[in-house]
Design a protein around this nucleic acid. Structure first.
Length: 569
DNA sequence: GCCGTTTTCGGCCCGACTGTTTTCAGTCG
């Protein structure tokens, strides 16, 4: 059984509600921590609770076991019900606004009766918030601004959050007899990082029957040759249907972005002298079995779905210069993972074995550096101890090599987080910004470039700092950063964490143009998220990357000799 | 609320920035 997402959310809500209530912070954190553990360790709480084994998991004491057992047995948690009757659960959303934490949320709730984001927006517009102690006209403006951001994100999802639902729908379609063929199209097929709808195309001769299969399960909005509905997870699903003759044509047209389809239609009209029709292939009597046949018929190279985002892929297909894109099986090294030495949930040995089981040859442990105190960053003495452990592990382990890395904070002045004598002990230094996000663009750019200039830096970590649908990139001239990486021969990370996918693919394209090598890194904090690295591969394909562009597709000897050569000239 | 123990209560996540203060509480990574 998979992780009970509802329980995880409930525990996180309890944590925040307790903080709003003003309870002991460590008590509140115990709930959030329990949620983290369930997710990281993929705990099957239901089985554990039923067998009385939940209390054996570190982090679950008497109180949590009792509450979770009640939840498992009855589907409810009376403690949660009581808590939410005192404090509206909608307040949790307010604490997600930057600059507004539990304390300020409490003030808003108690002084203005604000219970939701909508209430807060209204109060700001009516200029009520600025009058409260602790707030100002300026902070009121910032809040309004953030709310607009949040509203713009509403209804959108990160790609990974839709895979499960997409899979369910795919299998449901498979079970429907009137479905001739079906495929996912649109953003999901292109592996776009943000998804507004999960879109399928179905080939059928009996659309009414298709609709009736869905209408027994969902509340449908009917359109012309399509219908849509919302799932329980608030994902918008669209189903388009067509007859078998137009299936490949529509499969192609519904997959591309607007920009792509626009340039495709122009190309099509030039090449064929017929007007482009999105839904019907303009030649009767010609049908295709596959998209490859369609591209062939047009006399251009096949364009993989991931590349049907930009308007320049058509030109490249005409020139037949679309490269063979990187694949999951090309990766050899798992770079940038955390362990229990800092804020990870698994030991180095566990991480190494898990990477080995995924078929990797080497793993680069990159725990946090000393300034990252909140993440249990390593002081110099502990770095030395960790290196001893890694040496011992390399003696013991077979089939996987462990490299000594660090994720060093880039300090505000652009310097790294240790002195030189310690920095030179690492095989790999990933340098990342974790603090002081609100610098000017010029300052931030200078700071990151300064870090790239250090002879000890190998890789720039999560280069823009974006968190999909929750935090924009910090202000930085990313092209200047990429140019600098090219000048100094440094690697840039494609952080494959599905909440990040950072570098954005448009910039990956630019990095490749500049000859900058990319490392696809999972940034994992537990064994289960090592596979996140494969989200990175999909995303790297959107950035036109080939095996040769990606440093962790090198074997162990090639990789170590590459990192040794960096900055040491 | 959990954990560990010097066994029944104290430590746990710290330090810096931010904005609103007029000396600091709240937020954040």
């Amino acid at each position: 059984m998979e992780v009970d997402k509802k329980l995880v959310k409930l525990l996180r809500n309890i944590s925040i509600l307790l903080q709003i209530k003003g309870e002991n912070i460590f008590k509140a954190q115990a709930y959030a921590k329990a949620a983290d553990i369930i997710e990281a360790m993929q705990l099957d709480v239901h089985t554990l609770a039923k067998n009385g084994k939940l209390g054996e998991v570190e982090g679950f004491g008497e109180a949590l076991v009792k509450k979770i057992t009640e939840y498992v047995e009855t589907g409810r948690m009376s403690y949660y019900d009581k808590l939410t009757s005192e404090i509206p659960v909608e307040l949790v959303a307010i604490t997600k606004i930057p600059g507004i934490g539990p304390k300020k949320t409490k003030v808003l709730f108690e002084s203005l009766g604000i219970k939701s984001i909508d209430d807060l927006e209204r109060a700001c517009i009516e200029d009520k918030v600025s009058k409260i102690k602790g707030f100002s006209v300026k902070s009121q403006e910032i809040i309004l601004n953030s709310i607009q951001h949040i509203k713009a994100w509403k209804g959108k999802k990160q790609q990974f959050a839709c895979f499960q639902e997409a899979n369910n729908i795919f299998n449901f379609l498979k079970s429907i007899p009137v479905v001739h063929t079906h495929s996912i199209v649109g953003e999901m097929r292109r592996y776009s990082e943000i998804v507004t709808s999960v879109h399928f195309l179905v080939s059928t001769l009996e659309p009414q029957k298709l609709i009736s299969y869905f209408s027994t399960k969902y509340n449908l909005n009917l359109g012309v040759s399509s219908f849509s509905f919302q799932t329980d997870d608030e994902i918008l699903v669209q189903i388009s249907y067509c007859n078998p003759q137009n299936y490949i044509w529509q499969l192609h047209n519904l997959t591309g972005s607007e920009a792509y389809v626009d340039s495709f239609s122009k190309f099509f009209e030039e090449r064929t002298n017929r007007s482009f029709n999105f839904y019907e292939f303009p030649y009767s009597g010609i049908t295709f079995e596959t998209e490859e046949q369609l591209f062939d018929w047009l006399g251009i190279q096949y364009i993989p779905p991931e590349l049907r985002e930009s308007n320049f892929s058509i030109q490249r297909a005409i020139e037949r210069s679309i490269p063979k894109l990187i694949q999951e099986s090309d990766l050899r090294g798992m770079v940038h993972v955390h362990s229990t030495w800092s804020d990870g949930f698994n030991t180095i040995e566990q991480m190494a074995n898990a990477a080995k089981n995924l078929g990797f040859e080497y793993i680069v442990i990159c725990d946090h550096s000393q300034t990252a105190k909140y993440a249990n960053g390593l002081e110099p003495e502990r770095v030395i101890l960790q290196h001893k452990e890694i040496d011992a592990l390399n003696e013991k382990l077979t089939g996987i090599k462990v490299l000594k890395g660090i994720e060093s904070d880039i300090l505000p002045d652009g310097s790294l987080d240790y002195k030189e004598d310690l920095l030179q002990r690492f095989d790999v230094v990933v340098a990342s910004v974790h603090s002081h996000f609100k610098m000017t663009k010029a300052e931030m750019t200078r700071r990151i470039i300064y870090a790239l200039m250090s002879p000890y830096t190998h890789i720039l970590g999560h280069p823009t700092g974006r968190l999909l649908l929750s935090r924009d990139s910090y202000e930085v001239d990313i092209k200047a950063v990429i140019d600098a990486a090219a000048d100094y021969g440094k690697i840039i990370e494609l952080n494959a964490n599905p909440y990040r996918l950072d570098l954005p693919w448009e910039h990956i394209v630019y990095a490749k143009e500049k000859g900058v090598k990319i490392s696809i890194n999972p940034d994992s904090h537990d064994v289960n998220s090592l596979t996140d690295v494969f989200y990175g591969v999909n995303f790297a394909r959107k950035g036109w990357l080939e095996k040769k562009d990606v440093v962790n597709s090198l074997n162990f000897e090639e990789f170590t000799s590459l990192v040794k050569s960096i900055g040491r000239t």
